[in-house]
């Protein structure tokens, strides 16, 4: 069976597949040289609200739940898996230990290319200019 417009179709397919794979190729190259960002950890507090692994993976879900619990249910005390209690507040709990948005939050968010809109309303500990 003869293929109509064979050449342009194949060239087009090659370009398409190339474009599709390009990010992965570039990504692999970047991964080799990529260094994990160095976060500035709180000086006088070793334990976060939950374990380091949990916070790293699920802090956004935790914040999501915290917001609804505090705002809608009016319950502002959170008991973690170890039984320790925390006041539910981004500005008054999280950012009282993590005293710099730039040295903590932004490090990973910038690398991951995400820009959560927390700081459109919440005031970062560094203050606003």
């Amino acid at each position: 069976m003869k293929m109509h417009y064979g050449a342009p179709i194949i060239v087009g397919l090659v370009i398409f597949v190339g474009a599709l794979c390009a990010p992965f190729v570039v990504g692999m190259a970047v991964t080799k040289t990529y260094k994990q960002p160095e976060l500035k950890m709180p000086a006088n507090e070793k334990e976060c609200v939950e374990s380091k692994e949990f916070m790293r993976e699920k802090h956004m879900q935790l914040l999501n739940d915290w917001r609804d619990w505090a705002l809608r249910d009016g319950k502002r005390i959170y008991t973690n898996h170890a039984g320790k209690e925390f006041t539910i507040s981004l500005q008054n709990t999280c950012m009282k230990c993590h005293i710099s948005k730039a040295d903590f939050c932004d490090k990973c968010h910038t690398d991951a290319g995400v820009s959560p809109y927390c700081w459109d309303c919440h005031i970062q500990p560094e203050g606003l200019k």
């Binding site: 739940d65 502002r76 005390i77 008991t79």
Partner: peptide, 10 residues
């Protein structure tokens, strides 16, 4: 994450 919410009023 635990099902029931681990929260209470202040």
């Amino acid at each position: 994450m635990g099902g029931s919410a681990p929260i209470k009023e202040d």
